[in-house]
């Protein structure tokens, strides 16, 4: 049994310690918001926050995150920045199929928590780990800027 602090609650997981967090979340705990896209740290679909930093759950063994604060898309509305990001995403109708969007929102929230006025270059750097096959990048950029402008005013 491994205990993990997920979205503010302690959860027991009966899986080997080398199981990637992604599959522990999805199959073990039924938190299917974090998505599988590549399994080898190439697409960002599985992005979660660990101690406030974005992390790719598909390559993070659960043994490595014991004692750390894990936040998934399911609880990102508890975070004021996360909530603003979700609102901007809805305002601009960012999603198409939506599959990559949990990962995009987790990445964007992490960016905006560290940097309230990201430049285009900052956005490129923070967001280019996340693939969107539907091509929502222009709206993702616009939504991030919308949050930044709101925070400023």
């Amino acid at each position: 049994m491994i205990s993990l602090n997920i979205n503010g609650a302690m959860r027991q997981i009966d899986l080997p310690g080398d199981t990637p967090l992604l599959w522990a979340l999805r199959d073990g705990l039924g938190l299917t918001g974090a998505k599988y896209g590549c399994g080898i740290a190439l697409c960002g679909a599985c992005t979660v926050h660990v101690d406030g930093e974005p992390l790719l759950a598909c390559v993070t063994p659960i043994a490595d995150v014991v004692g750390k604060r894990i936040v998934t898309i399911e609880a990102i509305d508890q975070d004021p920045t996360g909530q603003k990001v979700q609102t901007a995403w809805l305002n601009l109708d960012v999603p198409q199929c939506g599959y990559c969007q949990p990962g995009q929102i987790m990445a964007a929230t992490a960016l905006l928590k560290h940097n309230q006025a990201p430049t285009d270059a900052d956005i490129d750097k923070a967001m280019s780990r996340n693939i969107c096959r539907c091509g929502t990048y222009p709206r993702i950029r616009a939504a991030i800027k919308q949050v930044a402008t709101e925070v400023k005013s």
Partner: peptide, 21 residues
């Protein structure tokens, strides 16, 4: 009109084929 699944998508609740349990 906003897309009907928007809220579910941004909160991670939207159910795709891979999410079935």
């Amino acid at each position: 009109l906003k897309i009907i699944d928007g809220q579910n998508i941004v909160s991670g609740k939207a159910q795709y084929g891979i999410d079935t349990r």
